[in-house]
Simulated scan of single mutants.
Amino acid sequence: MAAREAVRAARREAERPRWRRLLAWPTVFVRSLWHSLWWFARELGEALGELLMTLFALGFVAAVGLLVSAAWQTAPLPTAVLVAGAVAFLVYGGVEFFRERRRGRLTMVAVCAFGFVALWVALPLLPFWPYWLF
């Protein structure tokens, strides 16, 4: 079936006048160049977007750490309540991580937050874990 279509396309191309075939290659070249540039721009934009999100996340973590430190010195009880709420959110993410069905964006954010914190906490402990577990 595909071979027949290829033969039909070749015959249609051969039936076209020579001047139309000669004028077709610049448009094909420009079109393929445009698609290549568009793909490159999308990939570059995606990489820059990921870099900006990473920088934003690290800045956010640093700012929250400084605010929690300053808040603890000023008012320890409300700070403890705030930190307890964040820990509850992370526990919710951990519970949802081990479930089969996940629903909603908030759940995915909680699961990602749990995964990030779990890896961040486990990283210093990795040299002490037995290697046969991996």
Results as ranks from 00 to 15, higher is better:
M1C: 11
A2Q: 13
A2Y: 06
A3W: 05
A3V: 11
A6T: 09
V7K: 10
V7F: 05
V7Y: 04
A10H: 02
R11H: 08
R12Q: 09
R12G: 06
E15I: 05
R16A: 11
R18D: 13
R20K: 14
R20D: 13
L22E: 10
L23R: 08
L23E: 07
A24H: 05
A24I: 04
W25R: 12
P26I: 00
P26N: 06
T27F: 15
V30S: 07
R31P: 06
S32P: 00
H35Q: 15
H35L: 15
A41T: 08
L44R: 12
G45Y: 03
G45V: 04
L48N: 10
G49E: 01
E50K: 13
L52K: 11
L52M: 11
L55A: 12
L55C: 08
L55I: 08
L58N: 11
G59F: 05
G59L: 05
F60P: 04
F60E: 14
F60C: 13
A62C: 08
A62R: 07
V64L: 08
G65D: 01
S69L: 14
S69Q: 14
S69V: 10
A70E: 03
A70I: 04
A71I: 00
A71T: 02
W72N: 08
Q73H: 14
Q73A: 15
P76A: 13
P76R: 09
L77Y: 07
P78I: 04
T79I: 03
T79A: 02
A80C: 07
V81T: 07
A84V: 04
G85C: 10
G85M: 02
V87K: 02
V87I: 10
V87R: 00
A88C: 06
A88F: 04
F89N: 03
V91Y: 00
Y92I: 09
G93V: 04
G94T: 00
V95Q: 03
F98S: 11
R99H: 05
E100M: 09
R101N: 13
R102P: 02
G104K: 01
G104E: 01
G104L: 05
G104Q: 04
R105C: 09
T107C: 10
T107G: 11
T107L: 01
M108Y: 10
V109S: 12
F114G: 01
V117W: 04
A118N: 02
L119D: 11
L119H: 09
A122H: 01
P124F: 03
L125D: 05
L125I: 07
L126K: 00
F128H: 11
F128M: 10
F128N: 08
W129M: 13
W129L: 14
W129S: 10
P130V: 01
Y131N: 15
W132A: 14
